[in-house]
Design a protein around this nucleic acid. Structure first.
Length: 551
RNA sequence: CGGGGCGUAGCGCAGCCUGGUAGCGCAUCCGCUUUGGGAGCGGAAGGUCGCCGGUUCAAAUCCGGCCGCCCCGACCA
């Protein structure tokens, strides 16, 4: 097909929009792909929607290839469905009422709705099933940002698998993971499948697909390529500490006014890595002392994974009341509250607060001088070693483009979505859920495929294959060239606007179709046109007669 | 929800401090000249200055309230 730029709704902008920070946001707006309607609310304009449809079609083909069945569930959803699982109370869920006060939800995902339909599955003979749709999701995000990176309304491909048992779920999960890999490869995305936190979806195992680029997630990777994880789930091997000579028992020392690790380690001439810092937190109204190595940062997500969702730092008054000392001077020895220590502290002797202002203890050893539960609490740092091979870890921003969950029976039990198994017993369906946001995929592609001039679309998702630039005076010949390419099965954007060459070239670079053909008097004298590869910038002169075979 | 910033023509901005006929660049429309990397000249159109209230002879400008948007944090697929 041939689209004429003179007729298209394709408003390109010369300048970056004032409110854009990340490359994908700037380029998609400038290139006339998307426009903002409100915070986190976007319209896809014609060429942006074409890209979206290309991504959707790739996803659709790969989902169908693993036997998943496409359907469509509604956006407007009776609140009862969400009350059944308790997700009704999540703050990110949009709620509304109809005129007679009936309550509804605008869903952020469709586990409830699909589990509701799962009730019609009756027998193990019907299993496994996998259903999906491209549905509009609504999220009352506390803070939308970054163009398409984090929005309040978006289309998501979400699929739901129904199996007899855990083994079946494992298989459905694996098939989805493989399909996701094929989808992202076809979109020419660099991506990593990593273990993730399950967030508010319920259930247990979940993997994220992270694409390096801008984005809200932090991807930890080993230089040797054998380890990748989201920072909230990542493990790193901390650099070893240099310990002073061991002591037979803790020794109390005066540390006047020393409240920070930096102060204490400098004052006592001790490696900061041979100190421990104590962070009192409150969960369920009780104080717990979280203990990590002095040079580490507490990872709130990991702490919450151990202690529960509602952990908060203790207030200064709570600390003083419990420990009889202020925040910078507390420690695990004779702690009045349970101690939860980071794994790094199992071995070695550390300097810790003495639970008395202006005093610290040297030579404190876990197990000998205090009792603690151990867990991985520390945030991974760049200096850490890879847990697999000891290689150097790197941390980079990444976009979460897909997330797959093993839900188990979290949804099927409240909905009583049961089936009769081969042994004649009734069992709850074992479910999985699997999401991909095409909008985020598009943003990730642009983050990974652009230059100073604009976007460089992979051919698989480009809105058109070829940008035919008609220079003044040869509009007829340009149209003929476009017709030839169209007949050869390519999709064409024909720039037939009454504009200058420089402007058309700049727009072509910005819009980023894989190929550009320039039809101008200069080369037409030789019966040829120029063919430029957007990615490499290389030009080729192609005789008009063989245009159809040039691709 | 905490901190910071912004709201003036389609887009990017100045004007506000020190109140007095609303401006610049790009884009748009008309004409002429130009035409292979965002042209030149001439003419034109386009604005309830986010909203409401207050002060004042007079408010884009000062004061109060509200709304919207962006960034950082909290939170989050």
């Amino acid at each position: 097909m041939i689209a004429r730029a003179s007729q298209l709704f394709l408003p390109t902008l010369r300048d970056d929009p004032a409110d854009a920070e990340v490359a994908s946001h700037k380029l998609l707006v400038r290139g006339g792909f998307i426009r903002q309607v409100g915070a986190g609310i976007w319209t896809y304009m014609p060429i942006g929607w074409r890209v979206h449809q290309k991504v959707v079609q790739i996803i659709r083909e790969e989902m169908n290839a693993i036997g998943a069945q496409e359907m469509l569930a509604p956006v407007l959803t009776p609140a009862e469905l969400w009350q059944a699982t308790g997700r009704y109370d999540l703050p990110v869920v949009f709620k509304l009422q109809d005129r007679s006060g009936r309550q509804f939800v605008l869903p952020m995902s469709h586990e409830e709705t699909f589990a509701f339909h799962g009730k019609e599955l009756q027998s193990y003979k019907q299993l496994p099933q996998a259903w999906y749709h491209f549905g509009t999701k609504e999220r009352d995000e506390p803070r939308p940002r970054g163009g398409l990176l984090r929005v309040r309304e978006f289309i998501m491909k979400d699929s739901y698998s129904f199996d007899r048992d855990e083994a079946g779920l494992d298989e459905s999960f694996r098939k989805h993971a493989e399909a996701y890999g094929r989808i992202f490869e076809r979109c020419e995305l660099e991506y990593y499948e990593v273990e993730a936190e399950s967030g508010e979806m319920g259930g247990k195992d979940s993997n994220d697909f992270l694409a390096p680029g801008a984005g809200q997630n932090y991807l930890v990777r080993c230089e040797n390529g054998d380890y990748a994880a989201d920072i909230e789930a990542a493990h790193g091997v901390p650099a070893p500490a240099t310990f002073p000579d061991p002591l037979d028992a803790p020794e109390e020392v005066e540390t006047p006014g020393m409240r920070t690790i930096e102060d204490v380690s400098k004052f006592l001439q001790v490696d900061a890595r041979a100190t421990a810092k104590a962070m009192p937190v409150v969960v369920d109204g009780k104080i717990v002392l979280a203990l990590i190595r002095g040079d580490d940062r507490l990872d709130e997500a990991k702490l919450a994974a151990v202690l529960g969702q509602f952990v908060r730092p203790a207030h200064p008054e709570e600390i003083t009341e419990a420990f009889g000392a202020s925040g910078g001077s507390i420690g695990p020895v004779a702690s009045p509250v349970p101690v939860l220590a980071d794994e790094a502290l199992r071995e070695g002797q550390y300097v810790v607060g003495a639970n008395s202002d202006d005093r610290h203890l040297k030579g404190v050893q876990a197990g000998r001088d205090y009792e603690a539960d151990f867990a991985d609490l520390r945030r991974v740092k760049e200096a850490d070693a890879c847990p697999q091979c000891g290689g150097q870890l790197t941390i980079e921003q990444a976009i979460e483009i897909g997330h797959i969950f093993k839900l188990g029976t979290f949804y099927s039990v409240p909905f009583e979505a049961k089936f009769l198994d081969e042994d004649g017993t009734e069992k709850p369906l074992v479910m999985g859920s699997y999401g991909i946001g095409p909008g985020r995929v598009i943003a990730a592609i642009v983050e990974q495929h652009h230059d100073e001039q604009g976007i460089i679309w992979p051919r698989s998702v480009a809105p058109y294959d070829v940008h035919v630039v008609a220079l003044p005076g040869v509009e007829e010949q340009a149209h003929e060239a476009a017709t030839t390419l169209d007949a050869a099965g390519l999709s064409i954007l024909l720039d037939d606007r009454d504009a200058r060459a420089g402007e058309k070239f700049a727009d072509a670079d910005l819009i980023g179709l894989p190929y550009r053909i320039t039809v101008g008097k200069k080369t037409l004298e030789d019966g040829a046109v120029d063919l430029r590869d957007r990615a490499t910038g290389n030009d080729r002169r192609v005789p008009i007669g063989s245009l159809g075979e040039a691709f």
